[in-house]
């Protein structure tokens, strides 16, 4: 009797374990479903074409306009600037940590990178707002420091931990024999690094960069605090911009539940979800390549 009881208990628990195992799939699916569901009611009231192609985001005017072109461009504009800054810096730092730094400096640098990863984005946004923003304004002599450039600097900094630590893994996983071969042929350590190690670890570094960019495009709080939040297509890097994430975060609190404006924010969420899904998928493909 006791044995039968144990048997049933084991059976039940193993069902529960299986359920928890597939929970990740369920949640990804649910998230997509809810965004889609809420977003689709928006497209009942507003045309998909005007949404994707419209330049003006005036949800409060009459009639309201829900064109997300300026928001998408805002997000991409900040992300691309952040990438241009963080990719070279991140990869070089990773190279320094993995190949050049003596053990003590390496440990210190790595813990600082981890420390940076642990600082909440709202804190970084706050510090950036009171130090970086005035600095940018003075340095470039522009009317406001709340600009896409300030945002990009901050985001580049926040993407560092992801880019550095994953690139470093990729660089370290280059087989020792590659380096030995080059050194044996009389190449200097630097020559070995950029001719052998960098190309060999490129897929991993690409994965790191993609993951970093996924982080950047999804970042909300710091961006909202620093980029100025003006919904128009920027003409220079010192113009303020408004990203998709900041729009959702800033406006959701003020909308009426169930209104077109409310649904339009879900529609932005859907666009953002699809963009990050693609970025993550590419990142994962690169990472898989390195593992092999």
């Amino acid at each position: 009797m006791k044995k039968i009881f144990t048997f049933i208990k084991d059976f039940l628990i193993e069902r529960i374990i299986f359920l928890c195992g597939i929970l990740a799939i369920i949640f990804v699916f649910l998230i997509f479903l809810f965004l889609l569901n809420q977003g689709i009611s928006f497209f009942g009231a507003y045309s998909l074409w005007d949404f994707l192609g419209g330049k003006f985001w005036y949800p409060a005017s009459d009639p309201p306009q829900f064109g997300i072109l300026s928001l998408v461009i805002g997000s991409l504009f900040v992300t691309i600037q952040a990438a241009l800054i963080s990719i070279p810096l991140g990869v070089m730092t990773a190279l320094f940590i993995a190949e050049i730094a003596p053990p003590v400096i390496k440990d210190i640098l790595k813990s600082v990178v981890e420390l940076l990863a642990a600082i909440p984005s709202v804190v970084i946004g706050f510090i950036g707002m009171i130090t970086l923003v005035p600095l940018v304004r003075k340095l470039f002599n522009i009317p406001t420091g709340l600009s896409s450039f300030s945002g990009a600097l901050m985001l580049a900094f926040m993407a560092m931990p992801t880019i550095v630590s994953i690139s470093e893994d990729a660089i370290r996983s280059v087989p020792w024999s590659y380096k030995e071969g080059a050194i044996a042929l009389g190449a200097t350590r630097w020559q070995t690094m950029y001719r052998i190690i960098l190309p060999a670890s490129l897929p991993g570094i690409m994965g790191a960069v993609m993951l970093g960019m996924g982080r950047v495009i999804g970042e909300t709080m710091a961006v909202m605090m620093i980029t100025g939040n003006a919904a128009h297509i920027p003409s220079s890097v010192f113009d303020p911009v408004r990203t998709m994430t900041a729009t959702i975060a800033a406006e959701m609190g003020e909308t009426v539940k169930g209104s077109t404006h409310y649904h339009s924010l879900f529609a932005i969420g859907l666009v953002l979800f699809i963009i990050t899904f693609i970025i993550n998928f590419i990142a994962d493909t690169f990472m898989r390549k390195t593992r092999r």
Binding site: A24, F27, V28, I31, F34, L35, Q38, L211, G214, I217, G218, E219, T220, T245, I248, A249, M252, L265, F266, G269, L272, F273, T276, F277, I279, N280, F281, A283
Partner: peptide
């Protein structure tokens, strides 16, 4: 993918 979903989407 769950790890890469932006935090604001979780909010939504």
């Amino acid at each position: 993918n769950l790890a890469g979903v932006p935090s604001i989407i979780y909010g939504l």
